[in-house]
Design a protein around this nucleic acid. Sequence first.
DNA 1: CTTGACGACTTGACCGGTAAAGGTATACTT
DNA 2: AAGTATACCTTTACCGGTCAAGTCGTCAAG
Lengths: 335, 335
Amino acid sequence: MAITIKHIAEQVGVSKQAVSYALNNKPGQVSDSTRKKIIKTAQEMGYRPNWRARSFARKRSQIIGLVYGRPAHYIEQSQLVSHLVQRLSEIDHELLLIPAMGPVEKWAHKLRDGRVDGCLVSHPMPLGLDTFVAEHQLPAVFANLKSDLPVPQICFDDVTGARLAVEHLLELGHRRITYYCMPKRHGEHYSNEDRLQTYRRMMRKAGLDQHVDVVVEDQEDYAQRLAELDPSARPTAILAYNDLDAVALMRELWVHGIEVPRDLSLMGFNDDVARQSSPPLTTVATPIEDMVDQCVDLLMEQIGQAKDRPERDIQPVVLPETLIVRDSTCAMPSD
Amino acid sequence: MAITIKHIAEQVGVSKQAVSYALNNKPGQVSDSTRKKIIKTAQEMGYRPNWRARSFARKRSQIIGLVYGRPAHYIEQSQLVSHLVQRLSEIDHELLLIPAMGPVEKWAHKLRDGRVDGCLVSHPMPLGLDTFVAEHQLPAVFANLKSDLPVPQICFDDVTGARLAVEHLLELGHRRITYYCMPKRHGEHYSNEDRLQTYRRMMRKAGLDQHVDVVVEDQEDYAQRLAELDPSARPTAILAYNDLDAVALMRELWVHGIEVPRDLSLMGFNDDVARQSSPPLTTVATPIEDMVDQCVDLLMEQIGQAKDRPERDIQPVVLPETLIVRDSTCAMPSD
DNA sequence: CTTGACGACTTGACCGGTAAAGGTATACTT
DNA sequence: AAGTATACCTTTACCGGTCAAGTCGTCAAG
């Protein structure tokens, strides 16, 4: 049987409430001497506040939910999760994983029934969650997601990021540049759209319309097809939608005898697994940690003001992306 | 203001308790007609049980904690986490991440104060946690960890796994085989010990004592040193402690002009990132999903019987490992 | 006709904290 | 000396469920 404040109260000879005051450091409610006595006894008895009772009474669980879609994306998210946990622990909060499977109604109630104080929604956005959040005015932040609804959201400047990427490849002398991404799946990341559009615009501007070659494919097939092409017809550079796809493609290319960057320059986005590949991938970094920090701040702000609710101002925050040049891209041989 | 059972009770014209009975499908306490009426009203009013109140009253949170050490290990754990979440959701539970930083006393109380019903401890084991768990008889399972204390634990058969690996390399004709691992850090995985010992034993048995060359090093340095060695003195095969280290080493080797498997066969353990490398890594798979399943079962068993506590029988469960041959190992040129 | 069993509720207490209002004594005004 | 502020504690109620015991008809058995 665990120790409760009642036990301490009896032991010290004061009321429950006095103990509560003392242990919560409420100022001016308890004399210093009794406070010390109470704290000492609590420590001696090994008291730990019952977390369930406390969150019930306080109407706050100190838990933040992370809502996310397909579990396969976990690797991509490991940075996010790890930094998020870190950040939350600094403010004495914890992270609950809330997989979003099936229709919103099936699981979204978990965000309203008190198990979490607020939530962070991560890519890919479960269909209809923005509606749900807006409707119930839930404390939530959409991380790296875009929604038209007035929900707090933080995302990256993919337009600039893609511009940097294309510029990098152009500067290296590449002309046959392909944008590469996987088929669009339900709830797909908006980033792809922005990156793709920017790529197209940049290519057009550079007068390379005829080779605006966008591929949405299956990896193995694609590598095979590239290998069969005559090198003079093959793209000399590929800009992949993200690092994970880029690295996977790099492997397939290797299998088919195309070596990066000797035969083909390849780059990705996100700077997540980019460092692990051979060769290390040139990429456009998305500052995940900054994003997490901002998400947490925004979320705490919402939770704090939960009562007054002075209509939240929903300015989507946009974070900058930066080019990181590694070894998977190189200049065209000057011929 | 959220709907509570009290509201429903008033609406239907019955007592709170009747509503509770009806909604929890307690048999023989409520007539079918009122039950239906209650359920219908609850649905109409959009009732959702207050999760905080419920877990307080039931003394059960339906939350399982995942205790883990250094956050850097997150990638390795993504399979575990993703499958664990999946599995828990099937039994209506959720996963809370509990990072173990600093001394046990600082955070282990979280496992006792009711925020989780039980926990799964993952690699690396926080120092002293087994003692804590044993002492307080907490519902917990140590996943892929070994402890001498009587705590429930599930781990892999690393002896057999390492044997398979070495046999594989020997069969390919390799003789200069090196076991490669990173310097031992606090709370290091026991697997390394078992794998290393088995490697040594196998090599001795094969009469290759003189070349029992175990390296514990820094990656970049090591690749450099290998590159500087004369190929005839260099190991022809490296068995890395895990895939992550193996892949990282592969990259460094590539940088220094040593190509896998042409110049050197390389393999790892775990089959986590093995498929992503170029070339795909030969590895010894550790069946994470099986492990998770067993962990969950074991944990639920403990939680269920929490009251009677018929002294738990602590038989460490051992799961088999299997060899997966991919493209990073090949036969020695027959000379 | 009584007794007992049972089904279908209701009542009151309780989980372990917290919030708010309610005493006292002491000190400080005026 | 009466009024009032203040410091320090206690009392009571409450959060929203659940548990266990109690009530009250009804119906069957004795």
